[in-house]
Amino acid sequence: MTQRRPAGGKGGMRTRNAASPTRQGVAAKELQAARRKKRQKEVMRNRIILGVVCVALLALLVTLVVKLGGAILSSGGTADTSTITFSKDGQVVFEEVTDFDTQTYSKSEFKKYTQNLIKEFNETNGEKSISLKRLTYRKGQVYIKTTYKDAESYAAFSSYSTYNGSYEGAVNAGYDFSVLFCTTENDTKGTARAVTPDEEFAGMNVVVVSENVTVKVPGQIYYVSEKSTDVVDANTVSIKQADGNNDATDLVYIVYQPEK
């Protein structure tokens, strides 16, 4: 006799058990998808952080390169035209750029001649009154960089009137300020006018030069004598003759406030 299986017997149990793996598979897939999205978010976040760090490092590298390049240029660069630089400590640096004639001197002869001139001057005026820093040749010109202990040493060696010091010291040294002066503002040269030097220049420093050169002073320029001068920037003046005659010179006064 065949027995009838009660409703809800093993057959029903098998049906419910067969459905269970399907529900577990869906849950597992949802969990995997959630984990995958979480990992993707973490990867994106890490990429963003890495990108920000890379940009910051690149900006830092660019800044360092620019500063290093500026330092190298300022320390090792050479002037394109003859330039006198008056330092805060009183030293004078002269960079001379002039045509070089190989028919008069060979390069080795000229260098030896220059070294002998400096040696003889130092023997008379004191050791290291002048130091030769560089002597090079470029495109038919010679570049000579020399440093001088002070403006007096430069004047004695070059035979050009040269002074760097206080206005009061310049007056005591016999310099005459009864010439037309121009004020300087925004790196430009103003209109020439008569000044009252004892009132306007008191407490300031003065550079006096009698060469057609570029002059750099260690401070802010406020006045410059009118004749043969152009203001280049806040601490630089170019001296040249209006007619281009480099054999002619004028006594130029540059009044400045020394940097602290």
Rank of each mutant, 00 (worst) to 15 (best):
N235G: 12
K128C: 07
F86I: 09
Q91Y: 00
T22D: 06
T104Y: 08
V255H: 01
T147I: 12
Y143Q: 11
T229M: 03
E123W: 06
G169A: 11
R193W: 04
G190C: 05
D89N: 14
G12D: 06
V53L: 15
V209W: 00
V207W: 01
K216V: 04
D247H: 11
G190N: 08
A18P: 10
E123H: 12
L180S: 09
Q3A: 12
G219F: 00
I49G: 07
Q91M: 08
V26Q: 05
Y143I: 12
Y223I: 01
F94W: 02
V65K: 12
N245I: 06
E42W: 03
S131C: 07
I72C: 08
E96I: 07
F121H: 07
V206G: 01
K29V: 06
N246Y: 08
T229S: 10
K133D: 15
S82F: 01
Y222G: 03
D176N: 12
E127A: 08
T249Q: 07
K145L: 09
N245Y: 04
K38L: 03
E109M: 07
Y163L: 03
R138D: 13
K41Y: 05
R4K: 13
T98M: 15
R39K: 11
L64E: 10
E168K: 09
M204C: 12
P218R: 02
Q241E: 10
I118H: 11
T2F: 01
A192V: 02
A202G: 10
Q32L: 05
V252D: 06
V93C: 11
V55D: 13
D80N: 15
N164C: 05
V255L: 02
F110E: 09
I221Q: 01
F157W: 09
N245T: 13
D187M: 08
E96K: 11
K119N: 14
A18W: 04
V224L: 07
K133C: 08
A79L: 02
T15L: 10
Y167G: 00
Y148N: 01
K41V: 06
S106E: 13
P21H: 04
R39A: 07
V179S: 11
V232R: 02
V207T: 13
E259C: 06
D243S: 14
Q220E: 14
A242H: 03
V207D: 00
Q24F: 00
R4Q: 15
L31A: 15
R4M: 15
A7P: 15
Y143A: 07
E96S: 12
V208N: 02
L50M: 14
G169C: 02
S210W: 00
R47A: 05
T188G: 09
N205W: 00
V231N: 03
T83W: 03
P258Y: 00
V97I: 14
